[in-house]
Amino acid sequence: MSKIIVQGVAQGTVLKTTSPINFLGAVDKKTGVIHDKKYDIFEKSVKDTVLVFPHGIGSSVGAYTIYSLKSNQSAPVAMICQKADLTVASGCALANIPMIVVSNEEFNSIQDGNQITIDTKSEKIFN
């Protein structure tokens, strides 16, 4: 069962990490590249991906990082989380990035590299 946090329609390739993301500390707000080497998606870019991660952590200013990514055309097209947190939810709300929360089972079933379409109106994720 998924929960819609920010509405929208999006299509893209999944970039998945099982590490919670500290947007301020780990993501370059201009390029979208993960620059913290502790992440399994180190040196990958979140740009135009469907970013799948457990939840956000760390600084509250991470919301601005999400907004900046969007302004710099380096944002994910959508985000899918296991747990919603205020930083990611509010960043996506202001940046108009569709965001949904899914069950652990659904989260586990989404694979890195999958092509995904999200349509919050029909409440569906298509693989």
Binding site: I5, K29, V61, Y64, S68, L86, C92
Partner: peptide
């Protein structure tokens, strides 16, 4: 959005807000 994210049933009044997002280094041009 934040209410949905945290399963809030309503909004309530608050007395004081402390804001982050003041350092140009963190919030950038956008």
């Amino acid at each position: 959005a934040t209410g949905e994210a945290t399963n809030a049933e309503k909004l309530i009044p608050i007395k004081w807000a402390h804001l982050s997002g003041v350092n140009y280094n963190t919030i950038g041009d956008a």
